[in-house]
Amino acid sequence: MNKVKWKNICEDKDKRPEVQEYHNWKDLPPIPISFPIKGSIGTTGDWRTFKPIVNRETCTKCGICWMYCPEGTIIRNEEGEFEVDYVYCKGCGICAKECPTKSIEMIRESEE
């Protein structure tokens, strides 16, 4: 892992750090920054109230959910099936809304 602190960002701007590790205010860069890496804002799956559940029997693997997901949390597995990355899925429900075969159901987390 390429761990980077502020001074390193200053010295070499080409290297994109995978992890920014800071222990206290003195370590911090002048402003909060993040880099486009998986989970840069944390495990956003915690934000979810409704959980999308894919019905494998009716899913036609058209990929529309994958295209519409604003967070890139729908993943195509080796069999070409679509799965949800629940670590990061915020539960917005866009996939369920757009699914032409109504194969995605939004279920309240507590009722799962």
């Binding site: 701007k13 080409d14 994109r16 402003i31 909060p32 920054i33 993040s34 880099f35 486009p36 840069s40 804002i41």
Partner: peptide
Amino acid sequence: ERPMMHGNLI
């Protein structure tokens, strides 16, 4: 070439 996000939510 060096994408970065700033003005983030904390």
